[in-house]
Design a protein around this nucleic acid. Structure first.
Length: 302
DNA sequence: ACTGGGACCTGGACGC
DNA sequence: TGCGTCCAGGTCCCAG
């Protein structure tokens, strides 16, 4: 006779390598954290090592303790937690950062607190009973605590380009921003100063949908084609956020680990497989640009 | 100013 | 079984 069991942390581990956190994953994490954190007081902050990619403020735990989280925002791939102390906790997931929610979640399932694992670097116990655990094996992630008024001017955020889903990201902007650039369009779209929040995966997907070769020099693409990238980028990200949102509830019920959801990529990670662009069917090819994998269809991306 | 390449970090996949 | 090597990529930093 089988016995029902509580979800375990192992249930959260995706079978395949999880997608790296780009804008949609970060937004999904933010939405998942919100019910556990917004309006809640941080009763205890356990900073289990002094640094991720950079050292934490040495008194970060003390400054977090007793603070109420007013709201969670997102800028590019950063999560910003505004506190009632006048400070903002800046969080970046890097490449392997994960957020796990356990304990009491208002309006959601209750999970037992998991045993601490390797790479659990920061643990926040909320007064309401929820616990947020930040785990980051590769430690490319980051946290900093700065005055809220200065958060957007933080050196990590200061040079970021416009949000791809915002009004400032439009065809006139993108055409002007790429004019004269001799770098491949793949690299230009990965440049966070051009547009903030895209990573390797969604750049590959956007270029595939737009039918633009990742090798083409950014400044040599006809303006109408560049303009066409804007709605495609918005669509790719919006669809991914929607997928994350719809999976959030199920995923939280399954594990408590936030931000990972099933993707249906057309190009990324599909070397040798048929291109999924409507009516194409060419073979997806993998090349290396700037030391990174690029997946594209030589048949429909020109 | 722009561009390309290296460094950081660790776990997992792979070959011998 | 175990060891070495490669790969993943977000971001910073540096050299040209």
């Amino acid at each position: 006779m089988s016995v029902a069991r509580l979800p375990t942390r192992a249930d959260a581990k995706p079978e395949a390598a999880p997608p790296m956190p780009e804008l949609p994953e970060v937004e999904t994490v933010r939405r998942g954290l919100a019910p556990a954190m917004e309006g809640q007081v941080i009763a205890r902050a356990d900073v289990r090592r002094p640094d991720l990619r950079w050292p934490f403020p040495p008194d970060m735990a003390a400054r977090l303790t007793g603070a109420r989280v007013l709201r969670l925002r997102r800028r590019s791939k950063y999560i910003l937690a505004d506190l009632d102390t006048g400070e903002t906790l800046i969080i970046h997931l890097g490449m392997s950062g994960r957020m796990l929610v356990s304990g009491v979640m208002p309006g959601a399932f209750h999970f037992d607190h998991p045993a601490p694992e390797k790479h659990d670097h920061v643990v926040l116990d909320m007064a309401g009973g929820a616990r947020v655990t930040f785990n980051d094996a590769r430690r490319f992630g980051a946290m900093d605590l700065v005055p809220t008024a200065a958060a957007e001017a933080h050196w990590l955020l200061a040079d970021l380009g416009p949000e791809p889903l915002g009004n400032a990201f439009n065809d006139a902007y993108l055409v002007a921003r790429l004019r004269g650039r001799m770098t491949p369009i793949k690299a230009a779209l990965l440049d966070q100063r051009v547009v903030a929040g895209l990573g390797n995966i969604y750049v590959c997907e956007a270029l595939n949908r737009a039918g633009i070769s990742p090798r083409r020099k950014a400044g040599r693409i006809a303006a109408p084609r560049v303009a066409g990238l804007v709605p495609v980028i918005r669509d790719v990200l919006t669809e991914a956020i929607a997928a994350g949102g719809s999976s959030l509830r199920d995923h939280r019920q399954a594990s408590g680990e936030l931000g990972y959801f099933q993707h249906d990529f057309r190009a990324y990670g599909r070397e040798g497989a048929p291109c999924r662009s409507p009516g194409c069917g060419g073979a997806i090819r993998r090349i290396v640009q700037s030391g990174r994998s690029t997946f594209y269809c030589p048949r429909c991306q020109r």
